[in-house]
Amino acid sequence: MCLGIPGQIVEIVDPEKNLAKVAISGIRREVNITCIVDKDHPVNSCLGEWVLVHVGFAMTRIEEEEAKKTLALLQELGEAQKELESMTSTIK
């Protein structure tokens, strides 16, 4: 819940609601990108960017290399699997 997981924005779903699709380790999931959007960074400029996702919200932009390192660490900690499982198995 607190560590978050890095992913890449691959599609803008709804620019009005700030919704985008993020690819994380082969899984695609809709996330809200309000926290990384402002007048210098409009919604459409987010496409292709790497972000840190917390409970369905992109919280910050990160470098691609940083994203990959973090993902590797989360895998080692066993946190990535947990996070991805809850992303896909929700809502049960």
Binding site: R29, E30, N32, V55, G56, F57, M87, T90, I91, K92
Partner: peptide, 13 residues
């Protein structure tokens, strides 16, 4: 009681 990944899932429900 349902487990969700995000509060947005709750909103969808």
């Amino acid at each position: 009681v349902r487990m969700v990944y995000s509060p947005l899932d709750a909103l969808r429900l």
